[in-house]
């Protein structure tokens, strides 16, 4: 994975964490956690998907060069939020799909960090064998 790719994913994770409006001071850490999760998913996805997804991330990162003269990861947080929203509302399907894919995974990562305790169980008594 190239350095530009990792910068873009890190900025994307952070932006998605800030897009969630809940005001708390954990958002930067949550963004880093979400980005780490996204990087793991990119590394593990099917091998024939990795090159096109890599290119898509680089394209997403370079897109603001046209309007702002900067890469996505170099934009201010407000500009990154606006750019993410432009991709989400784009008429081009691949841009919408790109945002859907990364936002859904990043949110799953963020909520896993926030609410890992949800996976703890309370005790219950024994069950009866099923009569099928």
């Amino acid at each position: 994975m190239s350095r530009q790719f990792e910068y873009a994913i890190l900025a994307l994770g952070e932006t998605i964490a800030y897009e969630r409006r809940s005001a708390d001071d954990k958002r930067q850490a949550l963004g880093v956690g979400a980005a780490e999760f996204l990087l793991r998913v990119h590394r593990q996805m099917p091998d024939y998907l990795r090159p096109p997804f890599h290119i898509l991330v680089l394209l997403f990162n370079a897109w603001p060069l046209i309007r702002k003269g900067r890469f996505f990861y170099q934009l201010s947080l407000d500009d990154r939020l606006a750019e993410l929203d432009r991709w989400r509302r784009s008429r081009l399907e691949f841009r919408r799909r790109f945002v859907e894919f990364h936002v859904s995974l990043a949110l799953f990562g963020i909520y896993s960090n926030l609410y890992g305790q949800d996976y703890q169980h309370d005790p219950v008594v024994t069950g009866a064998p099923a009569r099928l």
Binding site: L105, Y111, Y115, D118
Partner: peptide, 14 residues
């Protein structure tokens, strides 16, 4: 329906 799963399912309504 734990919260991480809810967040994933609600991603269609950001």
């Amino acid at each position: 329906s734990k919260r991480p799963a809810l967040a994933l399912a609600m991603a269609a309504h950001p």
